[in-house]
Design a protein around this nucleic acid. Structure first.
Lengths: 366, 366
DNA sequence: GTCGTTGCTGGTAGCGCTGTCAACGATCCT
DNA sequence: AGGATCGTTGACAGCGCTACCAGCAACGAC
């Protein structure tokens, strides 16, 4: 057959069109909007494409159409379990769609985020997923000027750039403290690492709950900018104990720290929860398995990623969601480490945030 | 200024060239091979580009040059800590280079991997990073036919497609068992989950070491195809105990399982290491922090990712590494959970694999 | 003094695809 | 029955960049 091929032997759309007996543009339409074709041509093009093993050239498509099929994702960390769950959700949702994920790591730096944003935007992404609500002014302006849908994830707050999905870290922390109050604890310490904006808001929630109860003292708070780890949890707890030996509970900004605190208690032969109660944050898998089992605030990380990507893709395809801001809520999962009744895996005592509803009000406690 | 702009107002190379008073092709060269320009033009183009805020259009570049600046990465899981460390290394190495990472998740399915490979290859990636050495015949053929550098990561074996970086899981498992032998253990159980090829090879190493000592029994091995978790570690260990109550040590195929075993021991009031020793695999951060601290086989995951990406980029740029196969080795980190001397954080007792050297021989023990 | 060489620059011609618009026949309405 | 409308199809003209090759000056070798 005399039809000319690209030197690399690759099948182009023109070849498919020729085999199907249609014009290239008709073949093109088959891939982008099959409904626009008559059934006859549709099947002809389909079988021709299959027969030749045609794979579209994305670069050519992007150049011609002036837009890419890339969803940019900016997250602060690749290592943090929290983000890997979110990411898995994003990747799962993108699978089967025609969009591919372009991932970048801001390393918790909003300047780095701004730089990456500039890079991403220059390639006209189909959509963007960014972490949190604390962007630089410049970033914010770029996001607002971007002509693609955008989802902010991990938390909710006022003034979404576009769409938003997350929960209130402030309310979640308050709920955790409320739970500890319920269990009779009063001298509750706070242990936090990294202190990114979301951890900061958890701290704010802790502070406000403690102040409301007239129990706040600065020396109950131990934080560091160092990245979180289990070992660090033990170290921070050691600091806390040195400052205030009389604490009866510790609220940890995440589960790794909580595990570190648990190990440190074991090392020091402090009984959990009898002497000190422990509450973590995120409810990673191991929390239910530890001895004693560890109370934590469950967050819907996988769902958050999956829903964010799904919403984004729908928005790209022109079907904007009814509600642009989704509160996925949280749930305090009470376990042995904070239960005065020594029971295991009791039902959640408190949850907050109403799925599919934006809440700016304090979370509901029951 | 009367020069025509693309409707979106974007700056094109032509604008930069005009401002710099050179031809577009000269401006193009500035970005790809600055050395080819005279110093005068180089600075002119540079300042023009900066002044206009020019950002190259990657799609146009890819279409014209017939190649992309994308490195495809295929990994089995996004959630597994092991891979997030590797990924972090890959992303770190790619930063600052002109290559961007395209990540896909095979979900431990070599069929899925084959599908993704076909997709990736169709877009002519600049390079490819794939996990492991167990590809389908079809995948293998595609990889061999691919005209881009390829790095296989996570393990080493015979017949690399191109480059390879990892270590011998078989040897690592043998070293772990050898360590347990040294500590006087004989009835050593194996606990494994997921049973992907690398876990399988760890099992093979365990089996061979046990057989060498005349101690192998099938009922000492408990495995499942279920994805790994801490909770699962406890469950598998429970199975193991039911089958063989007399075990004196457990070798866990990863650290999550080991932690689960530790918790289960605590729940059952089995003293570690006095009654049962525990050894994990990967040496995640928490292992050093647990009570008792947990022995594990340290693997260089971050370095593996970083080196893989670095080697790949160098190869893409025409500087192929002297040695295409890199053995990053491993190290048995002895801690309390397997030490008959009850010491903490002693130096490594055994390591294997020689960095920068391919080893097919059994690992060295000291 | 002529003929390569080398170093730098520019012109031409696409890369493979899609946006736009026009054209066509079939169907529907009055 | 005639014209309007709809659904379907194709021609054309780029998208922004780079591969390829030609040109041109400067330089050294013989």
């Amino acid at each position: 057959m005399g039809r000319k091929r690209t030197k690399s032997g690759k099948i182009r759309l023109a070849e498919v069109a020729e085999l199907a007996g249609v014009s290239p543009i008709t073949a093109s339409r088959f891939f982008r909007n099959p409904e626009a074709l008559s059934v006859a041509k549709r099947t002809r093009v389909e079988s021709a494409a299959r027969e030749l093993g045609y794979v579209p050239n994305l670069a050519a498509r992007a150049l011609a159409s002036q837009r890419t099929e890339v969803i940019g994702v900016l997250i602060p960390s690749l290592t943090n379990n929290v983000f890997s769950d979110v990411l898995r959700g994003i990747y799962d949702a993108s699978e089967g769609s025609r969009y591919s994920i372009q991932l970048s790591n801001t390393r918790y730096s909003i300047l780095q985020e701004e730089k990456l944003l500039r890079l991403f935007l220059a390639q006209k992404p189909a959509g963007l997923i960014v972490t949190g609500i604390d962007q630089t002014t410049e970033s914010r302006a770029m996001l607002e000027a971007a002509d693609c849908p955008i989802v902010q994830i991990m938390e909710i707050g006022p003034n979404p750039v576009d769409m938003m999905i997350g929960f209130s870290h402030y309310d979640a922390a308050r709920a955790a403290i409320a739970h500890l109050f319920e269990q009779g604890h009063r001298k509750i310490g706070f242990v936090g690492a990294r202190m990114d904006p979301r951890v900061q808001r958890r701290l704010d929630g802790y502070v406000s709950a403690m102040k409301d109860a007239g129990l706040f003292e600065q020396r109950l708070v131990v934080t560091t900018a160092t990245p979180t780890s289990v070992t660090l949890g033990g170290a921070l707890f050691t600091d806390l104990l040195a400052r205030e030996p009389g604490i009866d509970a510790v609220f940890c900004a995440n589960d790794d720290l909580a595990l570190g605190v648990l190990f440190e208690c074991r090392r020091r032969e402090i009984a959990v929860p009898e002497q000190i109660a422990i509450v973590g944050f995120n409810d990673l898998e191991f929390m239910a398995s530890a001895v004693p089992t560890l109370t934590s605030v469950r967050t819907n990380r996988y769902e958050m990623g999956k829903t964010a990507a799904t919403m984004l893709i729908e928005a790209i395809d022109g079907r904007r969601p009814e509600r642009p801001v989704l509160d996925l809520g949280f749930k305090v999962i009470e376990r042995q480490s904070s239960s005065s009744r020594h029971s295991d895996n009791r039902p959640a005592v408190s949850s907050g945030g109403a799925p599919n509803k934006m809440v700016a009000l304090p979370s509901s406690h029951d």
